[in-house]
Amino acid sequence: MENITEEQVLQRAACLADEDPSHTYHKSYKYFVSYFFDKPCLTESDLVVGANFTYGWMPTILNFKSTEFERAVTIINKAKGAERITDDEILILKRLINNSLVGVSKLLHFINPDVYAIWDSRVCNFLTGKSHKQKVENTSLFWSYLDLCQRVMKHSKFDEIHKSFIEKIGYEVSPMRTLEQIMFINSNEPLQ
């Protein structure tokens, strides 16, 4: 993704003007983010509740695939901070939460939308032109995607696009959410 320019992503931002603020995702999104924002310390209960409401945005049912709840709670509390969690930590979360990087990325985004963007098959397809499971579940691609988002957010045109999207939908979202929406909406027209 290092070869993707900020301009290539931002040229696709016109799609945000057509976004319907009454869509189900918009209705639930602000409550999901608020749930975690209001909690200074997350518990196992928060992990279980959050994973389950995250799976309301998934086509599959949630199954916990490991018993590493205690370690996962430590990791999601760390994820509330400004620094990203590690590869090993994301794998612990992935093993627990349906063995799905997509589910983990959504949960991490709801916990800390300023640091993590939602990663799914549509975003992967937009960026790589492919969305098979091996690519979507690749943590290196996920980190590269977050790095790309950081680069795009620094572009001189981004603030205006971000503010316009917030005005359109009628509530605050992080810059990461705005970028993910550009990529998600344009997934049928990949950059590559």
Rank of each mutant, 00 (worst) to 15 (best):
H132A: 10
Y171I: 00
L148S: 03
Y55P: 12
D46L: 03
S131Q: 11
R84H: 14
D18K: 11
I169T: 04
L146A: 01
D88C: 04
M153H: 01
F110T: 01
E167C: 02
L148V: 05
I97G: 03
S156K: 14
L141Q: 05
H132C: 12
W119I: 10
H109L: 01
S174Y: 03
T74K: 13
L179T: 09
L148Q: 02
L42I: 12
T86F: 05
G103H: 03
G50Y: 06
D87T: 10
E180T: 06
L10D: 04
H23A: 15
F158N: 09
K135P: 00
A17D: 15
T67A: 07
I161N: 02
D20S: 11
Y145W: 07
Y25V: 12
L107R: 04
G56W: 00
L62F: 07
D120P: 10
S131G: 14
A51W: 09
S28R: 07
K130H: 13
I169S: 03
V102E: 12
M1T: 00
Y55S: 00
N98K: 01
Y31H: 15
I76Q: 06
K133D: 14
V73E: 11
E2G: 06
K78V: 03
H155T: 10
T24A: 14
R12I: 05
L93A: 06
T128Q: 00
H155F: 08
T139S: 09
P175M: 11
D147E: 12
K163G: 09
L107P: 09
V123Q: 00
I90S: 08
L107D: 10
W57I: 10
W119C: 09
E2K: 07
S156V: 08
P113S: 15
P40I: 04
F110E: 10
S22N: 12
E137Y: 05
E2Y: 06
K157S: 15
L91S: 07
T54E: 07
E68M: 08
S34R: 15
L10W: 04
I185N: 01
Q11K: 13
H132R: 11
V152A: 11
R95V: 00
N188L: 07
N188H: 11
N63V: 06
H109E: 03
T128G: 00
K154L: 15
I4F: 02
V49I: 15
R122L: 10
I75E: 02
M1H: 01
L42Q: 08
I4A: 03
A72R: 00
K80F: 05
N138Q: 07
D88G: 12
T24M: 09
P21S: 14
L47A: 02
R95Q: 15
F184V: 05
R95L: 04
I118P: 04
Q181D: 03
V102R: 00
S105C: 12
S66W: 04
S174I: 12
L42F: 02
F165N: 08
Q11D: 15
F142N: 05
T67C: 01
I92M: 06
L47V: 09
F37W: 02
K30R: 15
V73M: 12
S144K: 14
D114M: 10
K106R: 11
I182Q: 11
L127R: 02
T139A: 10
